[in-house]
Design a protein around this nucleic acid. Structure first.
Length: 902
RNA sequence: GGGCGCGUAGUCUAGUGGUUAUGACGUCACCCUGACACGGUGAAGGUCGCCAGUUCGAAUCUGGCCGCGCCCA
């Protein structure tokens, strides 16, 4: 069969199937060999920089990391292609407490007890853990194709981080913003360390509210009834408090009661903090083990000095605890106390009660409020400049709706407990002198006391909260406090991308440290990604086992498919499901792209020059060529706008629409005719150049999202330069916008859709080539359809397509549709009854619209108040609809018309 | 208990005062047409959570209610 092809279709140089394994690792190697992502040390001009939130060495990367990394890579690659000197610093967080907990668990599984290990041995074990996980995390990051600068890799425990951490601590200490205090902290009795407020989760739990009678000290009968959920703390009581206005207790204030079981005499005191409606309205006061009690006790200085009743593992201890209860843990103690109270006839009753308790984020142990000597950072002075900066728009949060909760937390900020009683982390840079008892706090570890010169120094045994290093990251990762070139050229960083759940842990604190230590914002924009959920919308967790290892997904589907599935179709800023269906969609899309280039290749003769700019089309150029260039420009604009507004999903979706529907479904299908040479060499050349240009641009725009496949395909086409990764990002206004071509193509596509619709409804089989007619609604439509008649005919597979003059009668026996562009007819193969269903349905829909439009026009208020052009538009719409209804009525038989209008 | 946010086709989603409410996945029908069945074409599917109000006009603004989620206590 002579098709008149001018090119050879039989030798595709790309394999027919897209196989990511065949090329993804190859391009990763190529990028690395070329140092494509190495940021210049001292660039001039535009710069773009960001730090990768250093993943915790606790585990390996999960899909949430992949989502964040993909968003960052999209931004980094786009800016790199746009010519910005781009620095993306990767790193690793030692994650102090979290890691120590994980290692402890592993040791426990192996039958060892971390608590009994010498410090050095435990540290060595943690180091082993770090090495294993670090290697795995690097492998995962590399396999994702993320364009980080590996030469700038940093670790939160490396020498430079040690320096930065000590520097920050010492500076704050000297400014009076770091202090040591004996305060009530959140104590984790399982891990035997203090934790910060943020590391405590409020959990609702079912417990029982116990009513205990405290007998009068001076009289044998009665007493005061106290309600408590923690009867085991009874040993620490120093008072019973009641509300001063509570009539029930007006006589009790000033009297004494006996604390059950330990028989101490304590006073009844008045305090407004007592809620008279809770329980019996009397509160037992245990100042060392409850923050509210401590506050109340503070207002009553005449109370006995309380002693501690729990040790560091929350076992009963101390002089106030009677022998039978000493050494018991909290739960056992509670049960025994209740038993003993019942025996002494002091237990009034116990009722089920639901309340919220604090559990440690790391160990899940119930937090014990405990007074201990710890280091704190005074936060309010640090928060001030941040609040001002965010209010002034100097730092922007995306999506902006999180700004409100950010402010609320910042405005009520509490001091930060930064000391941890663990081994894994930065030692607190404080040495205490045994001779004079004073502290020496210096960046370089001291050899002698700064105050008395004694060499008898004891280093603080604790380490710093891991976040005390992370909060310095945007500048510490660039070399701070050294005045490095990186710091000079790339700080402040451009953007921070992270998950919302560490907004307070990390983001807010980085802003505070940034202004404090560098006097500048650490980043201009913050983008919060959502959480990756599984197909049943559950949060991914180790416990559920529903979080796949990214490496497995990449091995099976490829990094590009994974990346695309994470940004499309669900918005990256919302919590969204991830599953095989999104992976399938991503793979299908990539296959489409692959085949699009396979289709393009044969139309690129050997020796074709790389694309420089849009083809200069002759005045007589085909409509489809002008149209796709215009569409490509709109797409470039949409992609640029979306990425500028931190909407990667919007950009991905614009590209998806363009590639699949505009380029593959419409342009390629229409242009096949001219590409084949059947319309002559000039038309063929024009379409070839157009196709090659648009495909080249598409690959560039898609590259930040799916870097491997685009790199592979770009190399299969004529290209300029070694790597797409470092090729130029074309300006959005490169191709001409052509509104005329867009309108005309709409007409063509509408005609095609109508005729196809008719065929499908009339069940005219594909091999049949019926005659078709269109009676255009106006001269403009007539002109376009006349010119593009061949295209319409080919896409609808009709035998002949004729344009009818306005007054011509309808072809007899043909199926018909009435549309805005005119009336379409398709010859029906068998002479059965004409199907009028579609026309009737259309008429019903139109009369509904017409009614609405007329009602509006009839409203005098509308004419008086609506803007004139809205009134005019509505009038025009009503006229057009009425006219179409009239034309439909001509086609409907009298009874059908009646049926439709009833 | 306080605060914030969200309710749009079976599922996810776009849309901040006037469009015949966007797109994806899924569903149904026909089709292996010379890049692609991981495909093509066509279709069905929504009283934009409910109730009031503001307005000439409300998915969009306001209030209340219902449901869901998150954060803080």
């Amino acid at each position: 069969m002579a098709l008149g092809r001018s090119v050879d279709l039989s030798v595709p140089s790309l394999p027919p199937r897209f196989e990511p394994k065949a090329f993804e690792a190859r391009w990763q190697d190529a990028w690395e060999r070329a140092h494509a992502f190495r940021a210049p040390e001292r660039p001039g001009g535009v710069r773009f920089s960001l730090v990768l939130p250093p993943p915790n060495v606790t585990g390996v990367l999960h899909l949430g990391h992949m989502l964040g990394d993909t968003v960052m890579d999209v931004l980094a690659r786009q800016h790199r292609m746009q010519g910005a000197a781009t620095l993306w610093v990767p790193g690793l967080d030692h994650a102090g407490l979290a890691t120590q907990v994980e290692v402890r668990r592993r040791l426990a599984r192996q039958g060892a007890r971390a608590e009994e290990m010498p410090r050095e041995e435990l540290l060595a074990e943690i180091e082993r853990w770090r090495a294993e996980h670090e290697a795995r995390i690097r492998e995962q990051t590399r396999a994702g194709g993320f364009s980080v600068d590996w030469d700038r890799y940093r670790y939160t425990l490396d020498a430079a981080s040690v320096r930065a951490t000590r520097e920050a601590f010492v500076a704050l200490y000297r400014q009076g913003l770091v202090y040591r205090g004996e305060r009530m902290v959140n104590w984790d009795p399982r891990l035997r360390t203090a934790v910060s407020d943020l590391e405590v989760n409020a959990v609702e739990e079912e417990t029982s509210l116990v009513f205990v009678r405290y007998p009068w000290a001076d009289a044998g009968l009665g007493g005061i009834e106290v309600a408590t959920v923690r009867p085991e703390t009874i040993f620490g009581d120093v008072a019973v408090a009641v509300h001063p206005d509570d009539a029930r207790y007006s006589d009790a204030i000033g009297r004494f009661v006996i604390v059950p079981l330990c028989h101490r005499r304590v006073p009844v005191i008045p305090d407004r903090a007592v809620d008279p409606t809770f329980g019996a309205g009397a509160l037992k006061i245990t100042p060392r083990h409850d923050p509210v009690d401590r506050e109340i006790a503070g207002r009553h200085p005449d109370l006995a000095e309380p002693t501690e009743i729990f040790d560091e593992e929350a076992r009963l201890t101390g002089p106030w605890v009677p022998a039978p209860f000493r050494g018991l843990d909290r739960d056992t103690a509670r049960a025994k106390v209740i038993d003993a109270l019942a025996r002494d006839d002091l237990l009034v009753r116990a009722e089920p009660y639901r309340h919220t308790i604090g559990r440690s984020d790391r160990s899940d142990a119930v937090i014990e409020p405990r007074i201990s000597r710890q280091w704190f950072v005074r936060m309010a002075p640090l928060a001030e400049p941040v609040l001002a900066a965010v209010r002034a728009g100097e730092i922007r949060l995306h999506p902006a709706r999180w700004t409100a909760s950010f402010f609320r937390w910042m405005e009520g900020i509490q001091d930060w407990c930064i000391s941890r009683q663990i081994v894994w982390g930065h030692p607190i840079p404080v040495a205490t002198c045994r001779a004079c008892g004073r502290d020496t706090v210096t960046v370089e570890p001291p050899t002698a006391c700064a105050h008395c010169g004694s060499r008898d120094l004891v280093a603080d045994p604790d380490v710093l909260d891991t976040w005390f290093t992370s909060w310095l990251w945007p500048f510490a990762a660039l070399g701070w406090p050294e005045p490095t070139a990186l710091l000079d050229r790339y700080y402040p960083t451009s953007v921070l991308v992270t998950a919302r759940d560490i907004m307070f842990f990390w983001v807010a604190r980085m802003m505070m440290s940034g202004y404090r230590f560098t006097g500048q914002r650490p980043f201009a924009d913050v983008y919060f990604t959502g959480m990756v959920l599984d197909a049943e919308a559950r949060r991914m967790s180790k416990h559920l086992g529903n979080s796949p290892d990214p490496l497995d997904v990449i091995a099976e589907r490829g990094a590009d498919a994974l990346r695309f599935a994470l940004v499309f179709p669900n918005p990256t800023s919302e919590d969204g499901p991830f599953g095989t269906s999104s992976l399938d969609s991503a793979r299908n899309f990539l296959t489409k792209l692959w085949n699009l280039v396979r289709f393009t290749l044969p139309h690129v003769p050997a020796g074709t020059a790389p694309v420089l700019g849009p083809p200069r089309l002759p005045a007589t150029a085909a409509l489809e060529d002008r149209w796709i260039l215009s569409r490509s420009r709109r797409t470039a604009e949409a992609v640029g706008t979306a990425l500028g507004e931190f909407e990667p999903t919007g950009a991905a979706s614009a590209l998806y629409q363009f590639v699949w529907h505009d380029l593959a479904d419409r342009y390629v299908e229409i242009a096949k005719e001219s590409l084949s040479g059947r319309r002559g060499e000039i038309a063929a050349r024009s379409s070839r150049a157009t196709l090659l240009f648009v495909v080249d641009r598409t690959l560039r725009w898609l590259h930040p999202f799916v870097p491997h496949i685009t790199e592979e395909l770009w190399h299969a086409l004529p290209h300029d330069g070694d790597l797409l990764a470092t090729a130029a990002w074309p300006p959005a206004d490169e191709a001409p916008a052509d509104p005329v071509a867009e309108v005309e193509m709409e007409t063509v596509l509408e005609a095609v859709r109508l005729l196809r619709n008719l065929r499908a409804e009339e069940r005219i089989p594909i091999p049949a080539t019926p005659s078709a007619w269109i009676r255009p609604a106006g001269p403009e439509v007539a002109r376009v359809l006349d010119r593009e008649r061949a295209t319409v005919g080919r896409l609808t597979r009709v035998g002949s397509l004729e344009l009818l003059p306005a007054e011509a009668p309808a072809p007899s026996g043909a199926a018909s549709r009435v549309a805005v562009l005119g009336e379409c007819y398709v010859e029906r193969p068998a002479k059965g009854p004409v199907t009028l269903e579609a026309l009737t349905r259309e008429r019903e829909k139109l009369s509904g619209l017409l009614e609405k439009a007329r009602a509006r026009l009839a409203d005098p208020g509308f004419r008086a108040r609506a803007p004139p052009d809205v009134v005019r538009e509505t009038e025009e719409k009503a006229r057009e609809i009425a006219e179409r209804i009239g034309r439909i009525d001509e086609h409907l038989s009298p009874d059908a018309a009646q049926g439709a209008s009833s």
